[in-house]
Amino acid sequence: METLIIAVLRTCFSFLILLTVSIWIGKQVNSHNNHYNFALSVTLGSFIANMGFDTNLKFTPMLASFIALIFMYLISSLISIKNRRFRLWLSGEPTVVIENGKLLDGNMKKIRYSLDDLNQQLREQGIFDLIEVEFALLEVSGKLSVLKKTKYQSVTKNEIVSTNTSVDIHLPIELVMDGKVVEKNLNSQYSSAWLNQELQSRNLQLKDIQYAVISSNSSLIIDLYNDHLKSPLDQE
């Protein structure tokens, strides 16, 4: 009877701990948006299961290990915010599987992604013909992000495009992330000199920029660390 009561109390206490942690860092863990978060959530579940049901294990050492895991997660999260290379190693990068309407077989083989998987995920987005796709990227989470060709995109009320107008579409090019230039994305058109000139014309310095990208319509979009918003929206 005593063992039963202890098991019930341990389970209730463990559940409260997990609930508290989920409220605290739940958005990142629950989303499973990368391999690290997936592994962390599985490990947290294992800890809670053992803390609650395995009465042969002492509760205090398990709790200490659980807390240590949480602190390890927080430290790695802080490092990844400031270090893009560490963040990419920890979280991974999306893989382009369709570019300019053509399948990239080499990339698909590297990630062991079959045509059946591709077609299934396209169908789930209402796309039944590969001819409609301009670009497709397989995210780290396993979800497929798709950019349709212009003529297959839904037209909104604000978009009145002449049928004779030709619009060039390309994959967005990230030039700056976390105040650092993404060197591998620079080319003859978007060179370091061009970027510096654009920043000078806007009276900006590289250290002030959180994110800069060439959009799919060739526009330079810049997001600053300090956006000078008087009342930033804080709705979750």
Rank of each mutant, 00 (worst) to 15 (best):
residue 149 K to V: 09
residue 150 T to N: 12
residue 150 T to D: 09
residue 152 Y to D: 02
residue 153 Q to N: 09
residue 153 Q to K: 11
residue 153 Q to T: 09
residue 154 S to L: 14
residue 155 V to T: 10
residue 155 V to A: 06
residue 155 V to S: 08
residue 155 V to N: 05
residue 156 T to S: 10
residue 157 K to A: 13
residue 157 K to V: 13
residue 158 N to M: 08
residue 159 E to Q: 03
residue 159 E to D: 07
residue 160 I to H: 02
residue 160 I to P: 00
residue 163 T to N: 04
residue 164 N to K: 09
residue 164 N to V: 03
residue 165 T to L: 14
residue 166 S to R: 08
residue 167 V to R: 09
residue 167 V to C: 07
residue 168 D to M: 11
residue 168 D to A: 11
residue 169 I to N: 03
residue 169 I to A: 02
residue 170 H to F: 11
residue 171 L to H: 03
residue 172 P to N: 06
residue 176 V to N: 03
residue 176 V to A: 05
residue 176 V to T: 05
residue 176 V to H: 03
residue 177 M to N: 14
residue 177 M to K: 15
residue 178 D to F: 04
residue 178 D to G: 10
residue 179 G to V: 12
residue 179 G to N: 07
residue 180 K to F: 02
residue 181 V to A: 06
residue 182 V to H: 00
residue 183 E to T: 07
residue 183 E to Y: 00
residue 184 K to S: 15
residue 185 N to V: 10
residue 185 N to P: 10
residue 186 L to P: 06
residue 186 L to V: 07
residue 186 L to W: 06
residue 187 N to K: 11
residue 187 N to R: 10
residue 187 N to Y: 05
residue 187 N to S: 09
residue 188 S to K: 15
residue 188 S to E: 15
residue 189 Q to T: 15
residue 189 Q to E: 13
residue 190 Y to T: 04
residue 190 Y to P: 02
residue 190 Y to I: 05
residue 190 Y to W: 14
residue 192 S to N: 09
residue 192 S to L: 11
residue 194 W to V: 01
residue 194 W to P: 01
residue 194 W to E: 01
residue 196 N to W: 01
residue 197 Q to K: 12
residue 197 Q to D: 11
residue 198 E to M: 13
residue 198 E to P: 00
residue 199 L to W: 04
residue 200 Q to L: 12
residue 201 S to F: 14
residue 201 S to H: 14
residue 204 L to E: 10
residue 205 Q to S: 09
residue 205 Q to T: 13
residue 206 L to Y: 11
residue 206 L to S: 13
residue 206 L to T: 14
residue 207 K to W: 02
residue 207 K to Q: 12
